[in-house]
Nucleic acid binder design. Structure first.
Lengths: 295, 295
DNA sequence: ACCACATATCTAAATTTTAGATAATTATAC
DNA sequence: GTATAATTATCTAAAATTTAGATATGTGGT
């Protein structure tokens, strides 16, 4: 293990010179003298053996190498700040890691949005994300390693709130026989066709979403279900948000059911065991809830 | 933008205390005095406001928080070292980034193995990986943004070497009609069935792998082809290494072709434009070649 | 040519870090 | 239980580093 020659301070100064547009302005922002800034930058360059800045006229400009190194040094500084934030936060009972378990039916864009909003509040806490299908969520809770779970129901003994309604649409490929009948469909019609269902990622007690058909194809992910149905192999109830493009591009078409063409499934946000959850988990839960309700 | 209070030096000392088993031993390894080590650790703790070490008897032991923070500080130190390595390497003409473009048929485990071996030699260089299908590789070369490409052929004007032979096997689901005939199959038999082919990710000049069938389903990834064929929708030539589990578990079965049941495709490693490639790219290429040939 | 602006350099002061000596604490041997 | 070895904490002075302030050097605009 080697020891770094440069220091975070030095990189910080370099960043300030660029961000505030000069040695003097950086000095002011950093509450140091201009000569101190000059010294730091010079020493950093000398230690690295790389020319980071070059004087163009009377303006200090980054070299090509300087630009690359500055970009990466920003990541380094962020990680350092994050480490210190974590130290400080843990003193106040913040968790260093959150295990977030999310049912695959939960819209990915909401998840991303929530995580983006969470980062500035994270104070160094990291989120470990697990995607599960159906009872996998409950299993994560019962095995005790999940801090926060988004799943299809709230198991007995846990605290949970409705977070989002997912609309499931019955769809098939436009070439599928069900689309050739030219009339409204009843459940009898469906019963004679292959239904594609998504298998359960847990193994406690298998559950299934679709319930009608006699003939079933079970696939292991929503993506695979979409592919399968697109290929005309059967019909399925799929989350609308997962098949937007396929609907627009005509690879999937909603079935003209006379009743129950789509149904809503509720997803709930559930907290893990009380002794595991702390303020970071609660903050993340709050943000997930906000993001999901405003859209 | 805030400035970190702790320094890389301090974290380095903490690591040494743990790794070498004590303040005195750490001091020796770091060529410092024991009091200096003691001072550094004490100051780090004071600055963070966190107790990192606790004396158990006469042994310094990490607290729970200390353990978490130490773990993350190692990542921080590694990133810092990597940054300095990059600075040093760029002086010697090393590239800060390599754009590696790989055809989806290339075995992932070889890629992972190669990248693992490359890391210790990377000197801070980062690899940006792009997966493409068929002509996407050539396109990346011609658009000039790829440093190293693994694809199905060597375009005119480029330098390339054979890196690996991929075995393609004709397969279908065990329930597929082609498996019900109970005899060896000729190309006539295949012509009457749906062939699943993988679409081209480039758009310069479309190419396709399979050539026989009249009826085709084009999918956009090897994974989707596998799923599709598993569902009995057709047959396909698929890379053997991609369907090992499906063959073992019986979801796919090789077709009993009287001739040409499998064919080999060569994958070539091709260098990008000479002005882009540097020593890091050459090193990565060398490792990819080694890894691919020894397995 | 001159002035305003910006960085480099020089020197001394201020600050931080280090080493060495010693104190304090604890496990181990007798 | 006491001596002893092992280990960290603390104290002080020395060493090293970093800072500020003054000034030199260099550039662009008028």
């Amino acid at each position: 293990m080697q020891t770094p020659r440069s220091s975070l301070e030095q990189w910080r100064v370099l960043q300030a010179v660029i961000d505030y547009g000069g040695f003097a302005k950086a000095a002011e922002q950093l509450h140091r003298s201009q000569s101190s800034v000059s010294y730091s930058v010079a020493k950093l360059q000398q230690q690295l053996g790389v020319e980071l800045l070059v004087m163009k006229g009377r303006k200090a400009c980054l070299t090509q190498k300087g630009e690359t190194l500055l970009r990466r040094s920003r990541e380094l500084l962020n990680e350092a700040i994050s480490l210190e934030n974590l130290a400080n936060s843990m003193e106040q009972g913040w968790e260093p890691d959150i295990s977030l378990v999310v049912d695959a039916a939960f819209p990915v864009h909401l998840l991303m949005e929530a995580l983006k909003h969470f980062t500035p509040h994270s104070r160094g806490t990291r989120v470990q994300l697990n995607e599960v299908i159906l009872s996998g969520a409950e299993q994560a809770l019962e095995e005790g390693w999940a801090d926060l779970v988004i799943g299809v129901h709230v198991p007995k003994g846990y605290l949970g709130d409705l977070i989002v309604e997912i609309e499931f649409v019955a769809v098939a490929s436009p070439e599928h026989p069900l689309h050739q009948l030219g009339r409204g469909l009843r459940s009898d019609d469906l019963r004679q066709q292959v239904q594609v269902v998504i298998g359960d990622s847990g193994n406690v007690r298998p559950m299934e979403w679709g319930w009608l058909g006699e003939q079933r194809w079970t696939v292991s992910s929503i993506d695979k279900a979409v592919t399968t149905v697109c290929h005309g192999l059967g019909f399925s109830w799929l989350p609308r948000h997962q098949i937007e493009t396929e609907l627009v591009e005509g690879r999937l078409k909603p079935l003209p059911l006379s009743e129950g063409q789509c149904f809503k499934a509720d997803l709930y946000q559930v907290f893990g065991h009380p002794e595991r959850i702390g303020p970071a988990t609660r903050k993340l839960a709050e943000i997930l809830m906000e993001v999901s309700h405003q859209q």
